[in-house]
Design a protein around this nucleic acid. Structure first.
Length: 882
RNA sequence: GGGGAAGUAGCUCAGCUGGUUAGAGCGCUACGUUGACAUCGUAGAGGUCAGGAGUUCGAAUCUCCUCUUUCCCA
């Protein structure tokens, strides 16, 4: 077969299009359950069907794909389960926004009509997301794709809800919750984002009842005073001790309320007396429970004041605040107003200011569930990478409050509770009931609310594998191997998956939680639509290629840390891809008619040169390092090792060194075989990171196999390790570099041929003789002489010392002796400084006795090498200065 | 108020369990089209590893303190 070489230029676009299509068609990434093989399973953090994927998704999925492709090549039974999240509130907000553009609200369409629109939206975005993932190279097990509201996931949700209800772990209660007046729904604690806001602290007089004088309370939210049912002070606060048990008159409302004592009050804050509004503040609510205070709700679900707010009924909450403050001022109740910084809760989805209010909602009792979830992280059965994130997880679970799971939305899993309109019984059922389990009435009404979107995501690791059915997938692939996600959803998702798994599977959901950071813009800001600084991953894919983008996202920063995104970084990695492309092109173009059966060749037994042995040894240790680093989730370091090996060693040195041999006949085949062997290994090692370019090139290589994605991952091979070849090559490379430095020093362009004399001891003489051609070629030397170290040295020359070899560049009439002396003196200074350092270290008794022998030996060698160099420099200077 | 992270070359960042002559990419300087690659090559300049104290034979790395920047939680 005549070999076809790669196209002259690297065109990522064509390659990625071709391969994402081919891979999908061939269904390479679908894994059947193979019981005799070790499983490796990742469930994708399901992207929300709210929009397009952003760079954060690209990072998350690149990391997963790297692990997945690596393990697949290692021969594991690998499945990466893709899917999307219905993202209840977020999606509903999006669809409502779209409707608003048509001048419609969800009420105009009605419940059924609105849901139809949301399902259509879901289909549209699910398709887009899937397409995007494929274009990024994600090797998902597509036939197993899931959706949090598909039939199976819905069944899992139903089972979990009913089961928790039966165990008493789900309950309904009137409780203070976070309410978003814009979305008109309850939110869980973590869906509220606290933002520091410049506010005011109002000092208001509350007159004593039945006597002169007043108490001053400080509040940031005066409008809630309309619902005050007490004033609280600290029991030990001497200022107020006498007032406890007495009453004050609530201004405007003219209502008498008691002064109570509670430890919760901070005597240092404000005046030390706080107004208590149990209906509109979480802490006040708890205090109200402790002291049996009435609850007066003055703010409604629409964010407006209720009729209980007296004359302010119907006012918007902010309007009420303004008007109320002026009234207080006019009436002389307002003592003073201070500037005050405080945290204000905002809705995570729509950014409206959240209103704490009392409402009847469904909750998950957290304490009993949290305990096992804490245990598995504390005892290391689940490991966070990096480890520090386990603290965040533990701290949250230790202080977790009950989870409000009901949402007043239309889009989501309906709560499986039917209220009997006759006896009021709550029918909580796995199958839709037709009659009341209590009284038999058929007049049943399902709870109108839906569940928090995270309720279904919490089941994702097992619901996607078929639970509650006992599927072979569940049995084989569960627990999953690793979860890859950002630190921003440790509470929302990771913790919840763990406790749900512990409760329902009696098993951890995954062994490792691999946490990554956020992608920020070049100024370190979060990327967001409103800032207009978001980068579209597909735009980068178009411009630089998916491989370059993937590499950019996973390198150059430590695990768990945020990363700034620069287009220049992607460009740099595109250049790296181009380098690989051209190096491969070179190898292929020099293959000629050779069809080496690399797989069947025992490479170590070929008649290898030192250079071959060196590159094989270096390649071999790269295999080892990359594999180890991947095992430690050190993706960035693994890439760095590969990048350096490929560019600096394989391309810059090996290819250059091997060139002459490819022209000759003697050992041409050996050189070709080594080239192709190392190249193929490189492509394999690089494939998880850069799947498209490696697959494309690999197809041009001789050998068997349909796809690189299913090729065997390289293994470390003892036989290829060759320390002495590595050492020899260092000498050779340093010699070549030394000549190049002299050339540059004298401003001699490469076109100018030069003569070089190398003086060496017997040991390296042989090595230099063997490497004569290399030196001549790579340093562009016309006439190369290798002489004994003791031989007479030319006077009119400039010199350098590299790896114990004296390099002389004779320059008849061109040498400026003063300049050369100065140059050598400068070098001598550096060497002397080094020598002194080593000497000092080695004369330190503590060092000699306490440091490991290896280290001491290393320092000794460094000292003697330095000394040798120093002596030669001194000698040379003596001659020049004679 | 509690907790985390970060401070290393002009910029962006690596540097794992303490032993390197402290690295990379970009940028910068000089030279260069040598038949894989100018999306490139060769050589180079550039760092008191935020500051202080301590532990140690030895600290960018461990401990404590200070300063600065960030993020999360209350």
């Amino acid at each position: 077969m005549a070999l076809i070489n790669l196209p002259k230029t690297y065109e990522p676009r064509e390659i990625q299009e071709k391969w994402s299509k081919k891979w999908a068609e061939a269904n390479y990434f679908h894994a059947k359950v193979e019981k005799d093989k070790e499983p490796f399973c990742i469930v994708i953090p399901p992207p929300n069907v709210t929009g397009f994927l952003h760079l954060g998704h690209a990072l998350d999925n690149a990391l997963q794909d790297i692990l997945i492709r690596w393990k697949r090549m290692q021969g594991y039974n690998v499945t990466w389960i893709p899917g999307t999240d219905h993202a209840g509130i977020a999606t509903q907000v999006k669809v409502e926004e779209r409707l608003a553009k048509e001048g419609l609200s969800r009420y105009d369409l009605g419940y059924e009509g609105f849901l139809e629109r949301v399902w259509a939206w879901k289909d549209e975005y699910e398709t887009r997301i899937t397409t995007q993932l494929k274009r990024l190279g994600a090797s998902c097990d597509w036939p197993r794709q899931r959706f949090t509201m598909d039939e199976g996931c819905s069944k899992a949700v139903r089972e979990v809800f009913v089961s928790l209800y039966e165990k008493g772990l789900i309950y309904q209660d009137d409780y203070i919750i976070n309410w978003c007046p814009r979305c008109r729904t309850a939110l869980s604690d973590i869906e509220v984002e606290h933002q520091d806001t410049a506010g005011k602290l109002y000092h208001v007089k509350y007159p004593f009842k039945g006597k002169d004088g007043y108490l001053v309370v400080a509040t940031t939210r005066p409008e809630t005073m309309l619902g005050d049912t007490a004033v609280a002070v600290h029991p030990d606060d001497d200022r107020y001790k006498d007032l406890i048990g007495q009453e004050v008159i609530l201004p405007i409302m003219e209502r008498a309320i008691p002064v109570i004592a509670d430890d919760y009050v901070d005597p240092q804050f404000g005046t030390g007396a706080v107004k208590i509004t149990p209906a509109h503040d979480p802490n006040d609510f708890l205090m109200g429970v402790r002291h049996n205070l009435p609850t007066i709700d003055v703010i409604g679900e629409d964010g407006k004041m209720t009729s209980k707010a007296g004359k302010y009924g119907g006012y918007d909450r902010y309007q009420c605040r303004r008007d109320l403050v002026s009234e207080l001022e006019e009436e002389g109740y307002l003592l003073k107003v201070e500037e005050h910084q405080h945290a204000v809760g905002h809705c995570q989805r729509c950014d409206d200011v959240v209103e704490p209010l009392v409402s009847r909602q469904w909750f998950v009792k957290m304490k009993p569930l949290a305990e096992p979830a804490l245990q598995v992280v504390r005892d290391g059965r689940i490991q966070f990478v990096p480890e520090r994130f386990s603290k965040i997880y533990i701290n949250w679970l230790e202080n977790v409050h009950d989870w409000c799971i009901s949402r007043q939305l239309w889009w989501g899993h309906r709560i499986p509770v039917w209220y009997c309109e006759d006896c009021g019984y709550k029918n909580v059922s796995r199958v839709d009931p037709t009659e009341c389990q209590e009284c038999g009435s058929e007049r049943l009404k399902q709870d109108p609310d839906v569940l928090d979107t995270w309720f279904s995501s919490a089941l994702w690791p097992f619901s996607t594998l078929g639970w509650p059915e006992k599927t072979p997938e569940l049995e084989h692939f569960y627990p999953t191997s690793v979860l890859v996600t950002g630190y921003d959803i440790i509470f929302f998702w990771v913790a919840r998956m763990v406790f749900m798994s512990m409760e329902f599977m009696k098993e951890i959901p995954f062994k490792y939680v691999f946490i990554h950071g956020l992608i920020r813009d070049s100024e370190g800001r979060k990327m967001s639509k409103s800032l207009g600084n978001a980068v579209d991953p597909l735009e980068m894919v178009e411009e630089y290629g998916a491989d370059a983008l993937r590499l950019t996202l996973v390198t150059g920063n430590a695990p768990g840390n945020d990363m700034r995104f620069y287009r220049e970084k992607v460009e740099g990695n595109r250049n790296f891809a181009n380098k690989i492309w051209n190096a491969s092109r070179f190898v292929l173009m020099n293959l000629g008619d050779l069809q080496p059966n690399v797989a069947g060749t025992d490479i170590a037994n070929l008649d290898l040169t030192q250079v071959d042995k060196w590159i094989l040894s270096r390649y071999n240790s790269s295999v080892k390092e990359v594999t180890e680093l991947l095992g430690q989730f050190e993706i960035g370091e693994a890439v760095r090792v590969l990048y350096d090996f490929i560019w600096s060693e394989f391309c810059d040195w090996y290819i250059e060194l091997v060139k002459p041999r490819l022209q000759g006949e003697d050992d041409r085949i050996v050189a070709q075989t080594v080239l192709i062997y190392v190249l193929e290994g490189i492509l394999k090692l690089l494939h998880p990171f850069m799947p498209f370019i490696t697959e494309e090139i690999w197809q041009y290589l001789p050998g068997e196999g349909e796809t690189l994605a299913l090729a065997k991952w390289p293994e470390f091979c003892e036989e290829l390790e060759d320390r002495s070849a590595e050492k020899n090559m260092v000498i050779l490379m340093e010699t070549i570099t030394a000549i190049r430095v002299l050339r540059a020093e004298m401003n001699l362009p490469p076109s100018k041929k030069i003569n070089i004399i190398l003086y060496s001891d017997n040991e390296s003489e042989e090595l230099l003789k063997a490497g004569e051609d290399y030196i001549r070629r790579l340093a562009r030397v016309e006439m190369l002489t290798i002489a004994d170290g003791g031989a007479e040295k030319p006077e009119k020359a400039i010199s350098a010392i590299a790896a114990g070899i004296e390099v002389y560049l004779p320059l008849e009439g061109l040498v400026d002796f003063d300049k050369e002396i100065a140059r050598l003196k400068e070098e001598l200074k550096v060497v002397e400084k080094e020598t002194a350092r080593f000497e000092k270290k080695l004369s330190n008794k503590g060092f000699l006795t306490k440091a490991p022998a290896e280290i001491v030996q290393g320092e000794r060698e460094k000292l003697s090498a330095n000394n040798e160099k120093r002596i030669k420099l001194v000698e040379r200077l003596a001659i020049l200065q004679r």
